[in-house]
Structure formats: C-alpha cells, structure tokens
Amino acid sequence: MADHAAHRDHPHGLAHQFEDMPQQKESAVIGMWSFLITEILFFGGFFATYLIYRSYYPYAFFEGSSHLDILLGGINTAVLIVSSLTMAMAVHESHSGNKKRIMVYLILTGILGLTFLVIKYFEYSSKVEHGLVPGLVWHPHGEYSPQLALFFSLYFGMTGMHALHMVVGIGLLTWVFVKTAQGTYTAEYNAPIEIFGLYWHFVDIVWIFLFPLLYLLGTQGGH
C-alpha cells in the first residue's frame, strides 16, 4: 500500500479512505446498524412513555384504541410486510448487480410505501373529523376518560414519527433508484442498496409494534 490513494488504480465505487471493498462494505453495514441503534432508542422514548401511561390508565387506552380502525391498520401492516419482501428482493438482486430487477423491486417498494401513507392520510383525516387530535381539534363526542388525550397524543406522536420515517425512506429510495438507473451499482459495489434496505426493514419493525399496541387494544374495551 505504498502508493498514494489517488495514484492507485482503484475499484469502481471505492472511497479514498478505504483499502478495499470488503472494508468499505463492512463499514457501511456497521454504520447503518449504529444509526439503527439510535433509532431504536429514539422510538424507545415513545414506547417508554406509552408503557408507563398505559399501565396507569388502561381504560383510557382501551377507549382510545376503540376509536381506531383495525381494518385500515391491518391493511397497512400487510402493505408494509409486502414492501419489506420487495425490499429484501431488491437487495437480493443487487448482489448479482441485475439492474433491471433491482429497479422493478425498488419501484414496487416505493409504491407500497406510498400506499401506506395514503391510507394513513385517510385515517388521520377521520380523526380530525371526529375531533380526536389533542390540542388542535379536540372535541370527542359524548363522555370520555380524562386521559383520552394522552392516548391520542401518543397515537399521533408515534404514528406521525413513523410516517415521517416513511417519507424520509421514500426520499432515500428515490435517490437509490436514480443511482441504480444510472448504473452506479454493480455486483461488487452495492452497499447503498443494502443499507437502505436495513433502514426500510427497521421502519417496518416499528410498525409491527405500533399496530398491536395502538389498534388491537380496543377489542378489549368492554371488559
């Protein structure tokens, strides 16, 4: 390695600070996992808040949950799972550098992500109609538990933060897609697709927890 980086001939996609492709790829993957650690703890603040208030006010949470639409939430869960599959397939194809297939799977993933957001939009607007947005439009019908606003603050906080991550994800996806179309990625250099996949799956996992915690409680409201 006696030579200066710029003078060496240099595999496609290898950044100057790395010695070789495996080192670069390993760094990318570890970097993404480090970032996901921060994401786990970031959402963890929400989940801790949820845990504590849920254990103090179970009935307010049952009540709040019964206002949510299990069907829409369930469909969205399925949508995200399918999108995780297509994302995993895109990563899979990236290992052989098959540009066309990568692009197809990325498009599918993007469409599913948008579908999720559209459904989420309809859910949100129905909450607005029913006056269930704490602070902004808050006039629930009939009698309600005093802590109902806690539940809906958490609902909007958690799903909103999740949706924000979806939006960022779709933005990143677009970028990866363009790069793929330009032929940047090869069988050797595909780390960006791979680590974007990690991000996408992580966002899916958050939803896997949000769905039962927020939507499915309502079925027990009567007890």
Binding site: I30, W33, M87, A88, H201
Partner: peptide
C-alpha cells in the same frame, strides 16, 4: 425480520452485538 430480511443471522458477531445493544439499553 431482523434475522432474515436484515441478514443478521448471516452477519458478523459485531452486528449481533449492535442489534443486541440497542435492545438491551431500551
């Protein structure tokens, strides 16, 4: 999802450690 879609089952010990650390501190 973590094991298969995110490839942790096939990944280095370090990746296991990282995923585990996140959960542990949570």
């Amino acid at each position: 999802v973590i094991l298969f879609f995110m490839h942790v089952k096939y990944a280095s010990r370090l990746t296991w450690l990282m995923a585990g650390a996140g959960v542990l501190f949570l």
